[in-house]
Design a protein around this nucleic acid. Structure first.
Length: 772
RNA sequence: GCCAGAGUGGUGGAAUGGCAGACACGUCGGCUUUAGGAGCCGAUGCCCUAUGGGGCGUGAGGGUUCGAGUCCCUUCUCUGGUACCA
């Protein structure tokens, strides 16, 4: 519902602000590439064709974009600077390559960032994601993890709570401890005294650690495995690799694992506990190994019961609690020896005591662990900015010198783009083989492209100077315009784009380019337009044909319908809406402009007081409603003003069409509508005798003198039930009001013969009589 | 499972702790019209009624308060996010 951002932009423009309301297309990415393969053409053809269509649609909707700042992230003159950003991050040590097990989409034939895997499926195509060991490029988001968390405090109240919560959960801070276990070889001594650290949020349960588990796919598991158990272990790992993520996460699935033939020494009890490899422990979280405390962790409990391992409770559960792990609070039990004593302590105290002990004996320490991983940015696909790095046998990774940017994509079309598991760019030999900028020897370009989210992680910095060919963005211009005062976008960006943009902003801030640390001061999530429950794409393509709706009812009515439908963040179902009703209202409003008979600039102070009060109250309310983004209610207020003006014109003995108050009201309606229904507003403005444009008319100011009410309704309650309504002066004295209330016949009847115990008087709005 | 958010007429939705249902859609009635439509006027939460009014009503159950859709606790349902994260 992009009309919402337009309403906000038009409002601040009416208020006299310099408003930058830009438009751009995040135009790299898989959809274009897949379409190009299918149609045997170049992705750019498909992309720019679609952009034109959508630009036409935006124009048709009269969105007040500044078209002179239009940009496309797939233009070389834009992605040149995306590559510049990459090099800046590289120089700062924030872009690096590493080998790791990564998410792989077998359908799109590319790696994916963690954020792009939704419930084990590819965010783009829905295919089941598998794992691959690959060397890939990463951005070091984890360097900023605590700041990403802390700086959210400043966004509180200006961003939707939902988005902040999603980011907090995604970052996933856990406070706990690192604990060092020593793994001893048995038999012929496979491993001698190797220290293995685990992360736990429950160091207080260390006395109950009865076994030890290493992620089956972590290198550590193979390293510590006893030779006599290697065959079983390898068979198990093989089985694990065959099961997909989806199977692995199936609820109620029995725990599986294999004993590695070695034992770990519990650093506090000195006990030797068996070491297992299992797939319920994740290689890439914490240290990839855990101490298992079946008494307090249900997963460990399940494993222990499956494998017949001992279970010790270290927290006293409530009476009658049995048969499962207890994760609630309670006094610690079975947790004392000569060195440390936790028994009787509640969990928070027991944690502190255990951490203090571990630190004292140098077998562990308090620590914080995060779920957030570094951002995997390389992709094995064509339609993105090439990574500006040259690999040289002698010099290693060599950044492309800035003056050689952009590294422009080679011209590949159709079949040449078919995914083969490595980037199509690597087959473009003329393009790939280059001189090393450092030694002049034979080098190869990095053939991967960047994730499209890199393009969109900095674009807002480009809008102040979209055509600058000398720099990515202008520090002074960004200082003037940035950060973005009001961002409008769908909630689907909560942990993707919004997190990446926050990271890039902080990184550029630390490099001295920006004087702010958060890119978007305020955020509103607009809802989607649906039809009978079915989603509609961003391009408004399927579901209801809004093009047809525009043909029938006009752009203004369609815009008004979206705005009036409900709160902006709610999805709207077009089937529940009445564009015909919107049109009817616009016609009603428009008709007012033809009925006004007083001249332009007529002195309004002599106009009908009652209508003027309605007008000025509407101005006050509408102003406040827009600024709090309650556009649907703002429209309702305009409707009330139209109804009141209609009555003033038509009513026998009323002010009539010549009253200056009628002109004032009609002009107010026109300006109010200019935010939502610009065409109608413009016509009204002209019919009212003004020259264009109503968009520059300026937002009206409410006259405080006209906001004072000359009488108010006081409700009189008996035992909390409304029994009478009194019309009183706003500054009525409380004793007088009480007397009036008690004198009212309905109130007296409700009191009957009961005794009045007390009377609460809140002048001038309410009187409540308490009887007993 | 865990974390958010939400449950209000036939529908979309309003309501700084103080008149529940603003504003619309829909429906019904009236005026106008050859007719249909449009326009305008009126009615419209449910139930009772002597037409003065009265009873009930914001998913359910408790509580705080003179007063609760709104605050607190419990519970149910729905939506979104997340999920062997130790």
């Amino acid at each position: 519902v992009f009309a919402l951002a337009d309403v906000i932009a038009r409002y601040w423009f009416q208020q006299g602000f310099d408003v930058l309301h830009p438009v751009g297309w995040d135009s790299f990415g898989l959809p274009a590439e897949n379409a190009a393969i299918q149609r045997n053409e170049h992705p750019a053809d498909w992309t720019y064709r679609n952009i034109e269509t959508q630009a036409e649609s935006f124009r048709r909707y009269a969105i007040s974009f500044d078209w002179s700042r239009r940009l496309h992230t797939a233009d070389p003159k834009y992605y040149r600077w995306t590559q510049w950003l990459f090099l800046k991050l590289y120089a700062a040590g924030l872009a690096y390559r590493k080998a790791s097990a990564v998410n792989w989409c077998p359908n799109d034939q590319t790696v994916l960032a963690n954020e792009q895997v939704v419930g084990g499926h590819c965010e783009r195509c829905g295919a089941e994601v598998t794992k691959r060991n690959l060397t890939q490029w990463y951005f070091k988001v984890t360097d900023f993890v605590q700041r990403l968390l802390d700086d959210m405090d400043a966004l509180q109240g200006n961003w939707p709570q939902r988005v902040l919560t999603m980011q907090r959960n995604w970052i996933g801070r856990s406070d706990g401890a690192h604990v060092d276990f020593v793994i001893e070889g048995t038999g012929d001594g496979a491993v001698a005294g190797r220290t293995v650290t685990v992360f736990t949020t429950r160091p207080d349960t260390l006395f109950g650690a009865t076994f030890f588990v290493i992620a089956a796919d972590a290198p550590l598991a193979a390293q510590v495995c006893h030779p006599d158990f290697r065959t079983q272990f390898e068979r198990y790992v093989h089985d694990v690799q065959r099961t997909t993520e989806i199977e692995r996460l199936t609820e109620g699935r029995e725990k599986s694992g294999v004993f590695l033939g070695v034992y770990a020494t519990n650093p506090v009890t000195g006990e030797q506990i068996p070491v297992y490899a299992a797939d319920y422990v994740l290689a890439d979280y914490g240290t990839g190994a855990i101490m298992a405390v079946p008494g307090e962790d249900q997963r460990d409990w399940d494993f222990a019961t499956t494998f017949g391992l001992p279970i010790v409770r270290t927290v006293k559960p409530p009476d009658g609690f049995e048969g499962e792990a207890y994760s609630g609070d309670g006094p610690a039990i079975n947790s004392s020896n000569d060195e440390v004593s936790l028994d009787g302590l509640v969990i928070p105290d027991a944690k502190k005591a255990m951490i203090a002990h571990l630190e004292k004996v140098h077998r562990g320490s308090g620590t914080v662990n995060y779920r957030l991983r570094d951002w995997l940015v390389s992709r094995q696909r064509f339609w993105g900015p090439p990574i500006p790095i040259i690999h040289c046998p002698g010099c290693g990774e060599v950044p492309v010198p800035e003056d050689q940017l952009p590294v422009v994509l080679p011209h590949l079309t159709g079949d040449e783009l078919t995914p083969k598991g490595e980037s199509p760019l690597s087959a473009a030999t003329d393009w790939v083989n280059v001189e090393c900028p450092s030694c002049g020897g034979a080098g190869r370009r990095d053939s991967d492209t960047m994730d499209t989210f890199v393009d969109s992680s900095w674009y807002f910095l480009r809008y102040p100077t979209p055509n600058d060919s000398t720099q990515a963005f202008d520090v002074e211009a960004v200082r003037r315009w940035g950060p973005v005062d009001q961002y409008v976008g769908g909630v689907e960006h909560a942990i993707l784009h919004l997190l990446y943009a926050r990271f890039v902003t902080k990184a550029l801030h630390d490099m001295g380019y920006l004087d702010f640390v958060e890119p978007f001061t305020a955020l509103i999530n607009q809802g989607e337009v649906r039809n009978q429950g079915k989603g509609m794409s961003k391009s408004l393509g399927n579901g209801v044909d809004l093009g047809e709706q525009i043909e029938t009812f006009g752009v203004d009515a369609v815009r008004l319908t979206m705005v009036f439908a409900g709160p902006p963040e709610d999805d709207i179902d077009w089937a529940d809406m009445s564009p015909a009703g919107s049109l009817k209202f616009l016609q009603r409003a428009w008709r007012l402009s033809g009925d006004v008979t007083s001249p332009v600039g007529v002195e309004v102070s002599a106009g009908d007081g009652s209508l003027r009060r309605v007008t000025h109250r509407t101005i006050r309310d509408a102003t406040q409603l827009i600024e709090s983004h309650r556009f649907n209610v703002m429209v309702a207020r305009l409707m009330e003003l139209v109804n009141a003006t209609r009555k003033a014109i038509d009513a026998d003995g009323g002010p009539g069409p010549g009253d200056p108050a009628v002109r004032e009201a009609a002009e107010t309606v026109a300006i109010g509508l200019s935010l939502v229904a610009p065409y109608t507003a413009e016509e009204m403005w002209e019919r009212l005798g003004h020259s264009p444009t109503v968009a520059k008319a300026g937002w009206p100011q409410a006259d405080p003198a006209l906001l004072v009410e000359d009488s108010v309704t006081c409700i009189v309650q008996v035992q909390g039930k409304v029994r009478a309504k009194l019309t009183v002066s706003p500054d009525v004295a409380e004793p007088d009001l009480q007397a009036m209330a008690l004198a009212d016949p309905n109130v007296r009847r409700a009191i009957g013969d009961k005794t009045v115990r007390s009377v609460i008087v809140k002048a001038p709005r309410v009187v409540n009589v308490v009887v007993g």
